[in-house]
Amino acid sequence: MKIKKLTIYTSKVKRQLQFYRDELNFQVRDYDETSFELLTGYSILRFEYRENAKPYHIAFHIPDNQEEEALRWIENERSALPNNNQKIIDFSNWGAKSVYFYDEDKNIMELISRRDFSKPKSAIFSADSIVGVAEIGLATVNIQEKFKKMQTECGLVKFDGDLERFCAVGEASGLIITINKNEKVWFPTGDKAFSADFILEFEYDQTGYSMSFKEDQLEISKK
């Protein structure tokens, strides 16, 4: 599953633009007072203004074995978010290591390094090292309903978890992290999970799809 474009919402367009463009040095396009787009490897992350936007959980792929370089990079601007005092978090069952940080909306942003996914092009880590969008969190009251729709309309499969509290849907190249917002909080901060609206454009099994998540309802169409 390859995530091509993810659209999310922010109440702080200007501040988010400054953070990603001016502090982290991401490449930006199509920016105005109400929106902008980040170029994140093979993906685009689009921010659009919404007055009452809710926070998200989003992950970026980074090159294999560059989690230490990524940690130093993000901590030039702000502290990484630890788990049990560890700022590089090992997901051995996924063959991955992650670094987390907050952006200006308190979105929980993750830099995930998987083994044998993308070899580094440079020993120096920067925003240009980002490989693509890896994950989007989907907080709902009914995981089973959402999974069944994704499975029926896209053929997506369960990567890990269950259908009660947590279910990672897709494959290592791209995941929808589906959780029951009434029973689970976001890792590693323990922040409350909200049903934050998004639009996701992705490719799976050589087919393009558009997925809209709005007010805890999921709509999927082929592109």
Rank of each mutant, 00 (worst) to 15 (best):
K4L: 12
K5M: 09
K5T: 10
Y9Q: 13
Y9N: 02
S11F: 02
V13I: 14
V13H: 00
K14S: 12
K14C: 00
K14Y: 00
Q16S: 15
L17T: 10
Q18D: 14
Y20R: 09
R21C: 04
E23F: 04
E23K: 13
E23Q: 11
F26K: 01
V28S: 04
V28T: 12
V28I: 15
R29N: 12
Y31W: 12
Y31Q: 14
E37W: 05
E37C: 12
L38F: 05
T40F: 07
Y42W: 10
Y42L: 03
I44T: 15
I44H: 10
F47C: 06
K54G: 09
P55H: 05
H57F: 09
I58W: 01
A59G: 14
H61N: 14
P63N: 08
Q66L: 09
E69P: 08
W73T: 12
E77A: 11
R78Q: 15
A80H: 05
P82I: 03
N83A: 14
N83H: 13
N84F: 13
N85P: 04
Q86F: 11
I89M: 12
D90L: 06
F91G: 11
N93H: 12
Y100I: 10
Y102S: 11
E104R: 10
K106M: 11
N107M: 09
E110Y: 03
L111S: 03
I112H: 12
I112E: 11
S113A: 15
S113C: 12
D116E: 14
D116M: 00
F117L: 15
F117W: 11
K119Q: 13
P120T: 02
K121E: 14
K121F: 01
A123N: 13
A123Q: 13
I124W: 01
S126H: 04
D128Y: 06
I130L: 14
V131K: 08
G132S: 14
V133P: 07
V133Y: 09
A134K: 11
G137S: 06
T140H: 03
T140R: 04
N142L: 02
I143W: 02
K148Q: 13
K148I: 13
K149H: 02
Q151M: 11
T152G: 06
T152P: 05
L156W: 10
D160M: 10
D160W: 06
D160R: 04
G161T: 02
G161D: 05
D162S: 04
D162R: 07
L163H: 04
R165K: 15
C167H: 03
A168C: 09
V169H: 02
G170Y: 08
E171H: 10
A172H: 03
T178W: 04
I179G: 06
K181L: 10
K181W: 00
N182I: 04
E183I: 00
K184I: 00
W186S: 02
W186T: 03
T189V: 08
G190K: 09
G190C: 10
D191H: 10
K192M: 09
A193V: 03
A193C: 06
F194T: 06
F194H: 13
F194R: 02
S195T: 01
A196K: 00
A196P: 01
E201D: 12
Y204F: 15
D205E: 14
T207D: 07
T207V: 11
G208S: 13
S210M: 12
M211P: 04
S212M: 12
F213D: 08
I220W: 08
